[in-house]
Design a protein around this nucleic acid. Structure first.
Length: 424
RNA sequence: GGAGAGAUGGCAGAGUGGUCGAAUGCGAGUGAUUGCUAAUCACUUGUACUUGGGUUAACCAGGUACCGAGGGUUCGAAUCCCUCUCUCUCCGCCA
């Protein structure tokens, strides 16, 4: 959520920066509602002041035995007037805050202006696409031969896009989760948490998924709960409506399954496990002092990159242009893995600085050097997402005989197994 | 799912219709004093919104709202009534 004071005072700048996200249309209705609300509020406040003063007087006169019926009647009608106006203010506020909650964050000055993903900027590439003496197969072929997953039965159980991992596949999921959590907790200073995966509407609003992206979420109507699309939601909301008492920064990491309806993605990446409704992910979340958030973002990307380096995978880091930036982000880097079976890049991490956009929505504050409360800056990034990481491992480490080498760093987590061999 | 108890400022905890934005204690801050590093005294110390002043700052003055949330009664609600949420205890069910 943007600061209404900044919208008021620096309207032109805000308009310009929102235009880079094609979201400037909401601005004028918001300003109109704000003006109207304040005008009415000021008026009502004066009436209430009058009522408060007179009510005290009534108390005193009553005690003195005076007749107060006339003045009481007068106050009764003032009370009705106030009640009507209060209702109007509530309506205005509801419309106002609904619009404000639909206004995206402003792109940071360092975010390149662009319309879509074609204008994202490659910041760096690590490693070279591996050379194969044979034609690398897609992961669904590789995985099927290994008994790594059983996508047909997954579809039977829940539907397409709900993968069933089996045998070595299930083991590798578990291994990767432990491997990543260990690195982030022991080397990068994150504290591990295991949050609820069902979250309420307040949490979803706090991080920015609601109200705009409702259609992308699984919703459990009977209990009015949502399935978290990412651990970002429950983890960031740990400190909702709190003033952080300890020192900043706070680094948290969590493994959770993630659930996405992928409402607008029908027909894309339908084979294999590149685009699925349920996947595992290790997430990194930071709560930091505003002045440090951009150096913290660089460090966060580095934390995710370490995972890929340790696994010996080729990747590139992209900076998203304004048009491809997510709703709440001011600046975002994506990390993409090279997948030879797809002959393309797969996004496995998205690392964003939200500045105070989420903190303002979720009301997460800290005490600054002067002891005054101020909004923290929040950041998060995937560290990293599992399904596509598995795709990259299967496709990069496949051998001509159909076996797959286990990345050396992962072998201890696989019970010493260093090669997965075809079962049939 | 059933029964009961509770929810007040950073924390603890009074307050049962007006003089309550809220006693008291703790904590924190400022100043003074004493001086075997700790103590005594005085004062200060919630948040949000808003109007005006002020160098779009610090800050100052006024107003409104906030005693879990929402609604009601009343000239007037922390206080009375209703609904809801959450916490705790007991029972039931359950991995």
């Amino acid at each position: 959520m943007l600061d209404i004071k900044i919208i008021r005072d620096q309207t032109d700048t805000v308009r310009q920066r929102l235009a880079a996200k094609k979201a400037e249309a909401l601005l004028d209705p918001i300003l109109d509602l704000d003006r109207e609300r304040r005008r009415l509020q000021t008026e009502v406040d004066q009436w209430k002041n009058q009522r408060n003063v007179v009510s005290k007087e009534i108390g005193a006169r009553k005690k003195a035995g005076e007749d107060i019926s006339a003045i009481q009647a007068e106050m009764r009608s003032l009370g009705d007037q106030i009640a009507t106006a209060d209702q109007q203010i509530r309506d205005l506020e509801e419309r106002f805050s609904d619009l404000l909650l639909r206004l995206p964050n402003l792109p940071h000055a360092s975010t390149p202006v662009g319309t879509d993903s074609s204008e994202n900027v490659v910041v760096r590439t690590h490693g070279e696409p591996r050379a194969f003496p044979f034609t690398p197969k897609p992961h669904w072929d590789v995985g099927n031969r290994l008994g790594f997953f059983d996508l047909e039965r997954g579809a039977k159980i829940a539907g397409a896009g709900f993968p069933l991992f089996t045998g070595v596949g299930a083991r590798m999921e578990r291994a990767l989760i432990s491997f990543m959590l260990d690195i982030h907790t022991t080397r990068h200073g994150y504290k591990e948490v295991a949050p609820p995966i069902l979250v309420n509407a307040a949490s979803m609003t706090g991080t920015g998924q609601l109200p705009k992206m409702k259609e992308d979420m699984y919703y459990i109507g009977a209990d009015d709960l949502y399935l978290a699309p990412t651990a970002e939601v429950p983890v960031t909301n740990i400190y909702r409506d709190e003033v952080l008492s300890g020192p900043l920064p706070v680094y948290l990491t969590a493994y959770t399954p993630c659930f996405r309806r992928e409402a607008g993605a029908a027909g894309r990446d339908t084979r294999g496990i590149i685009r699925v409704h349920q996947f595992d992910k290790v997430e990194l979340v930071k709560f930091v002092e505003p002045s440090t958030s951009y150096t913290e973002l660089e460090a966060l990307v580095g934390n995710a990159e370490v995972i890929l380096q340790e696994l010996g995978l080729t990747y590139r880091v992209l900076q998203l242009c304004s048009g491809d930036l997510s709703f709440a982000a001011a600046k975002c880097y994506d990390i993409e893995l090279w997948a030879p079976g797809q002959n393309g890049w797969l996004e496995v991490s998205s690392c964003s600085n939200f500045e105070d956009f989420q903190a303002r929505r979720a009301n997460i504050r800290y005490r600054d050097a002067n002891g005054k409360t101020a909004f923290v800056h929040t950041l998060n990034g995937s560290g990293v997402a599992l399904a596509r990481l598995v795709v990259a491992i299967l496709e990069n480490y496949q051998q001509e005989d159909g076996s797959v080498l286990v990345p050396p760093a992962l072998v201890p987590y696989m019970g010493g197994v260093d090669r997965l061999t075809p079962v049939a």
